[in-house]
Simulated assay, not measured.
Amino acid sequence: MSVHIDIAGLRPERVAVVPSPLAELGMALHAMSEPGHHPGLQAWATGVTARLDPHLADRMSEADFLWRTTFSDLFMPFAGVPGRTTLPGGTIAEDLDLLDKLSDEQFVEAALEFTCALSYGAPGPMLLGDPELRRRALELAAARGPRQVRFSQRLLTDPPRIRAWFRQFVEDCDESFYAETWARMGHQLAADARHKTELLRRRGMAEALAAVSPAAMVDAGGTRITVDKLGDGRTSTGDGGLLLVPTSMGWPHLSVLHRYGWQPVLHYPVGSPELASPPSVEQLALRMTALSHPVRMRICRHLARSAYTTSELARAHGMTAPEISRHLGVLKKAGLLTTRRRGRYVLHQLDVTVVARLGSDFLEGILR
């Protein structure tokens, strides 16, 4: 499973690495609503929440479906501006001005895309002009509680009102807590953007993407970017551009905006405690499957304590050597074993370091 970006014919000058204050605010709101995803930000989130104006906190709860479980493209409006070459603004105000350039249809669909299961990577019927789609959107919103139903109803019947509400909400967040936060982290993001831009210029797309994340890579022909994620999607730069947007508060989330008709965006984390060379989603699945079998779990109990030969394990578990070999093969293919030869004997041992990482690797894999 992965997201693919077709970059055939993409001109180098159409690739940009630029921070976005509004995109980072989206990640800040997410960290406040889901602190378990971001243990390194829990102190910050607790401090901000404790000082928050009750009215602003209430408005946060009203629209938290925009950032709690997924990240609404409303926080990256530059990608939806016609022409697909617009860069993020340098300030919250500039990003909000770009948001004003989106049509009502773009705004509404970006707000309801995930919670109301709208079409994302392919063209579909226009929500505001399709009564059946509107009915279905409200029906799905009902499953998420009365707050979202009310918000969705207002959004569908009076988009300009909600657009004004959202702009005021962002401005109030900026005044209340975010301006101070952005003043501290904006320099780090700008420095990372300069570094990645230099890599693009001197070393090319492949090395720049490798520096962005081990989960992002370009094919040998330089025509397609593949991002290893627990999901599928496709998009193309076409005659537009490609944006790489760094986030300081976003680890472990590596997001790809691949909305139909919008400029592709790779929203990647920087300055995080990310483990070196995290496994692919496929490798993670192999490891979880390998460890889920009760016999292999018992074998791992032995191998975690010491190195054993196949014959020793067969005797210990009352199984034949070929049966043990098959289980060891599964564990080895998943990268969970180390082997060494001692004379004519081959000793197997569990790689405890890899197994210990599975907890954080699993979390990173499903949140990527």
Rank of each mutant, 00 (worst) to 15 (best):
M1S: 14
S2H: 11
V3F: 05
H4W: 12
I5P: 08
I5V: 15
I5S: 05
D6S: 11
I7L: 10
I7D: 10
I7V: 15
A8P: 05
A8D: 15
A8Y: 00
A8R: 14
A8M: 09
G9S: 06
G9Y: 05
G9P: 02
L10W: 03
L10R: 07
R11A: 15
R11T: 13
R11L: 15
R11Q: 15
R11M: 09
P12L: 02
P12R: 12
E13W: 14
E13H: 13
E13F: 10
R14A: 15
R14D: 15
R14M: 14
R14F: 11
V15R: 12
V15N: 02
A16H: 15
V17D: 08
V18G: 00
V18I: 11
V18P: 00
P19Q: 09
P21T: 08
P21W: 03
P21I: 09
L22P: 01
L22H: 08
L22V: 05
A23I: 06
A23G: 13
A23S: 14
L25V: 02
L25H: 07
L25G: 00
G26Y: 05
G26L: 04
G26D: 09
G26C: 02
A28R: 03
A28F: 01
A28I: 00
H30M: 13
A31H: 04
A31M: 12
M32R: 14
M32D: 03
S33V: 09
S33N: 04
E34T: 12
E34M: 12
E34C: 12
E34W: 09
E34R: 15
P35M: 01
P35R: 01
G36P: 00
G36M: 10
H37M: 11
H38L: 02
H38M: 08
P39K: 09
L41K: 08
L41N: 07
